[in-house]
Design a protein around this nucleic acid. Structure first.
Length: 137
DNA sequence: GCCAACGTTGGC
DNA sequence: GCCAACGTTGGC
């Protein structure tokens, strides 16, 4: 299983809306960046993703699970970009802020820090565990 | 509100 | 094909 991080502005799509979407899940669409799209295409059913609130909060708030692998994004008129479906899994007991991630030297290699504009990125399993611990899961 | 980083567009 | 101009993201 692989791990990922998905960014969303909570005033557009938040972990609460994701939770309300329930077990049937919801599309993760609207990605218009090729590097992010490449990562979406690499996702496999069952992979888990951190749910990060960008701009407002700037913290990892929960975990979602891939329920449908990459397919053509219906919101993209050009037909070039893909979406996946994810369903809510859980919230972190304690959200892990960007600030805390930056302070942890073991996490300094994360693209979240190095490439702040990327909205879909891989997370190595070691970092996944560290952040899970920070989130008190 | 500002701006750095980065992506895209369009003139040449 | 280059690159200046412009647009967007997202942290600060």
């Amino acid at each position: 299983m692989n791990y990922w991080l998905l960014k969303s502005e909570p005033n557009v799509w938040s972990i609460y809306q994701q939770e309300d979407a329930g077990a049937s899940g919801a599309p993760w669409d609207g990605v218009r960046n090729h590097q992010a799209a490449k990562n979406l295409k690499l996702m496999k059913k069952g992979d888990q993703c951190f749910f990060y609130h960008s701009n407002i909060g700037k913290e990892i708030v929960g975990i979602v699970k891939v329920t449908k692998e990459a397919y053509q994004d219906k919101t993209d008129a050009s037909g070039k970009f893909v979406a996946v479906n994810v369903r809510f899994l859980k919230k972190l007991k304690r959200p892990v802020s960007l600030e805390k991630i930056k302070k942890n030297k073991q996490l300094s290699h994360l693209l979240l820090i190095k490439q702040s504009r990327l909205s879909v990125m891989p997370i190595d399993s070691k970092s996944w565990k560290i952040i899970n611990n920070m989130g008190k899961i």
